[in-house]
Each structure stands twice: as structure tokens, then as C-alpha cells.
Amino acid sequence: MTIQFKTETFRDDFTFSNSPEAIHRFPFPFDKDEYMYAVNIEQHMPGPVKSAFEFPIDIDEHYVSEMKDRALVLKQDPLRCQSLPHMITAEWDLLELLMESMAKNYPEHFTLTRDGDSWHWVNGPLGIDQKFTFGDTSTLPYPPMEYITRQCQGDFNLIDQRNDNLWMDAGIVTTQADWSLDFDIGMNFMEWHAPVPLAHDIGVFDRALKFLLNLQQGRPVRRLNWTMTINPRLDTSPENYHKWGVDRTTVTPENVGNKVHLRVELQALWRLPRSNAIVFSIRAYLIKMEELVTIPKWGRRFHRVLRDLKPELADYKGLTRYRQMTVDYLSKFDDGAPTSPGFFPD
């Protein structure tokens, strides 16, 4: 299965769009017509063929352009990639996980040859051919986490476990929904979730932490999270909020279908073998409203979810300014018919 990689941008002229196949495989996050926080964690098992869950690490048509956007972000702001010194073993664990998974599931594009600690990695789409010694950072052009995550879609965090808590001690974060790695690095699980409203009070984080402390090697888990973004911008960081925030004022009834995007995060967690750390990956998928409504079930359902969303959640997700205009647009695609249970298109 060879992927046709698109050339597109996530800034300036915003040429990003989804092909019909990419729309069909979009990880739509609502399995019913309403939304509230939940510990919606499930085993990260292989999903349907061609879905975003088919493989542990999903590579899609946006891969090459997303990696170019990441390189631009890092050039402007190197603090988006940081790792505390004790995380170096976890960095190597992550490199192994990603290389093994990409090479196994996309052999047309990536190959990994291992001979003891002598490794040979070939990344076709990005034109990289690298021989290196596993465990020896001097044999790679970047530290191991940065090296491999410059070649893999999604943000990645490496989480240490000690004192019955999880600690955000390393990461590369260039496609985030308004949180700062530079600010949050070194925090524990409750601390880095501090700004999230409501969820603390209903015990979501206590239960999630208890669950994750027991995460087993070889049994990764995943959950979906969502927000909305104006323009297909990947770098919606707080660092640059004073530059992109104004986008939220540019939505009109004429452009809402093209400008307003549902942004879904496929979050997955793996226990790592050498370090006992946890990988927390946050892969962002974007879809325009006019693409979303080409799946009738999703147009109906998202209209209902957005219309009935609690105001605190709308505020926290930054939707308030353009929510009504989007609801009005989506209402034209909601004939009131019942929707079938589950995420997938009918």
C-alpha cells in the first residue's frame, strides 16, 4: 500500500485539505449525539483496515508536509523539544518503538535493519538513510527522541513514573492545542492538567492516573480528544497565540465551512521496556466543516454535539467566538434523522 504524499501548508496560505479517502478514515470522536469528559480509554488494538487505528503508528497523506511544518516550528522555537537528563534511556526506547512500528507496517516507505547495536534506518519519503549505533547518541545528528520524532507525525511526550505519579519529563510538541511543553515539563499528572475545567471535580484525572500507573508493556491504550481550530494550523501553541488568536475573529457565514476545522487528537500510551517510562503520543487530525458534512452521519451528529456543549467546555476549548456561526452552518446538514451508534460512517 503506497501512500501518495501531498504537498500542502499548515500556515500562511493554508493549502491543507483531505482527500475523499482521508475524510473517510478521519477518526471522528463522537459515538453519540452529545459530549462530556470521560476516561474514554481503550486498548490500542488494530482497528479496521485503512482506518486511522489500523496500525499502532498511523502515517497518512499529510506526512511529508507535516514534517516540514515541524521543522519550521523547531527552527523558530527550539524550546518545543526538551528532555530532562534522566530521560535518555526512554528516548532510545521511543526511537525503537517508532522505527519498528513504521518499518513493519509501511515497508514500502521505511526500512530498519538491525545487527546487534548497529542499526540502519531508511526513510524513503523524507530521503533519509542513516546508519547508527543504538545507545550511542554521538552517531545520530540529533538526540534520539528529536531524531525520530522529526520523522513521525504527532506530538510525543515521555513520561517518567515515580512516587506513584507520572512526570512529564521530555517531549516534542509542535502541533498542540494551546499548551506549552516549556512550561509544563517536569510537572506531574495532576499539575499539567491543572487548567482543565470540570474534569478534576468528577474524578476523571484520579481514575486516569490510577489506570496509567498500571499500564503494561505490550498493551498500549488510546483515547480520542477534540477541539476546534480556525484554519488548518498545526502550531496552535500558547507561544504563538498572540499571532494566531486573531484568526478566531475571521470566521464569517460565507467562509465557515472552509475555515472552521474539527481537530481530533488520537492519544496513545505505551509502556517502554528499558526505562519503564510511558510514551504519550498526541496525533492531531484536522477536517474542515465542508469536508465533515460529506459524511451525513457526522454532519448531523457534530451539529448536535456542538449545539448542546456546556459553556465551560466551549470556553476552555476556545470555541465561544465562532460556535454559533458553526452551529448555524451545520444545522443545514441536520435533518433531524436519528444517527446510528458508534463512530464510523454508515
Binding site: F183, D184, G186, M187, E191, P238, H242, W244, G245, R248
Partner: peptide
């Protein structure tokens, strides 16, 4: 000034208040 504190930086987080209303 967000109600979010970093021990490593010993500081609360300050974020533009008027990015959406320049």
C-alpha cells in the same frame, strides 16, 4: 495571568489577553 504554575520556572503563566481583540 493563568492559574497555572510551573515549579521549574517558579512562575505563573502569562498569556496574551487581547490576541482575539487586538
Amino acid at each position: 495571568v493563568r492559574d497555572h504554575y510551573s515549579r521549574r520556572l517558579a512562575a505563573f503563566q502569562g498569556v496574551s489577553i487581547n490576541a482575539e481583540t487586538p
